[in-house]
């Protein structure tokens, strides 16, 4: 026993910032100690890239071959990968609740919002990793930014910010639903139609009319168009503005819902 007792410090203003960062650090430590949990943001993007490029690419690109398909596919696949990665946030939160870890946080004199911000910030690392893995694989196969490196990097940043906005849906559902399996089930139910029913893999005008109507309102479409414009070229302004509007909307609706669910969850 040491003689000098380390007293518990007094609560300071803006303590929630440091608390959120501490909890984000926790998520990163967990990733380092459980690297196999990163399969969804590392191997999965590579497998999807190989599958669509080499298996379906020849047929979809109608003679241009996989090399011709890569510049169209990669920005789209980037969106799908990151959107898929967001659901891991909800699954992880649900797991923390089920194991009683969040009860520990809730029993401590810390800001209520900190554990949620910490979880989202920690997962930003996962999203970034998935973006880097996929882009690096693309570069190895011959993909190049056609619109300048600055725009290419901006594209990577926007897709990350989109993920950070969208993940609030899964934070909310992760807190609402009873089990992690439930979260995952609903996530797949939403993610598959949302990402495959889009312009990610095929040009939207090849789709039947009812699907085109859906694609026209889907935020995925506009994000994909933004990415293709930044990385390849084409009209940027309209898709970018619609994408930003969706991001603001997603946070404005789902972050408050998530915080409410967090307060009420017992």
């Amino acid at each position: 026993m040491s003689t000098a007792v380390i007293e518990r410090p007094k609560t300071r203003p803006f303590a929630w910032v440091q608390q959120s960062l501490t909890l984000a650090w926790r998520n990163i430590v967990r990733i380092r100690q459980n690297p196999e949990a990163l399969a969804d943001v590392t191997f999965q993007p590579i497998i999807f890239l190989a599958l669509f490029l080499f298996v379906f690419g020849g047929a979809i690109s109608q003679g241009a071959g996989w090399r011709g398909y890569l510049p169209v596919l990669l920005p789209g696949l980037l969106v799908q990968t990151v959107v898929f990665a967001t659901m891991g946030t909800g699954v992880g939160l649900n797991d923390d609740f089920a194991k009683g870890v969040f009860d520990r946080f809730r029993s401590l004199p810390i800001a209520r919002i900190s554990p949620l911000i910490g979880a989202v910030l920690g997962d930003a690392v996962r999203y970034s990793l998935s973006i880097i893995v996929l882009m690096a694989s693309g570069f190895v196969l011959g993909f190049r930014f056609q619109n300048g490196i600055g725009n290419g990097l901006l594209g990577m940043l926007i897709v990350l910010l989109f993920a950070l906005s969208m993940c609030w849906i899964w934070v909310w559902l992760g807190l609402k639903l009873k089990t992690a399996q439930g979260v995952q089930g609903i996530a797949f139910l939403v993610m598959f139609p949302l990402t495959f029913g889009s312009n990610i893999f095929v040009p939207a005008d090849t789709l039947p009319g009812f699907l085109q109507a859906f694609v026209k309102i889907s935020p995925i479409t506009y994000l994909v168009d933004t990415e293709r414009a930044l990385m390849g070229g084409g009209a940027l302004q309209k898709p970018l503005l619609i994408t930003l509007a969706w991001m603001v909307g997603l946070v404005a609706i789902f972050a408050p819902l998530a915080i409410r669910a967090y307060r009420r969850r017992t």
Binding site: R8, P9, K10, T11, R12, A15, Q18, Q19, T22, L23, W25, R26, V29, R30, Q33, N34, D96, K99, G100, V101, D103, R104, F105, R106, S107, L108, P109, I110, S114
Partner: peptide
Amino acid sequence: LTGQYASVDEDMSGRRNLAMIGRLLG
């Protein structure tokens, strides 16, 4: 609080669990 009421994080080391709580307490 202990045990069933409030758990430690099983995926972190004992030392990091304790240090994390210390950091959260300021």
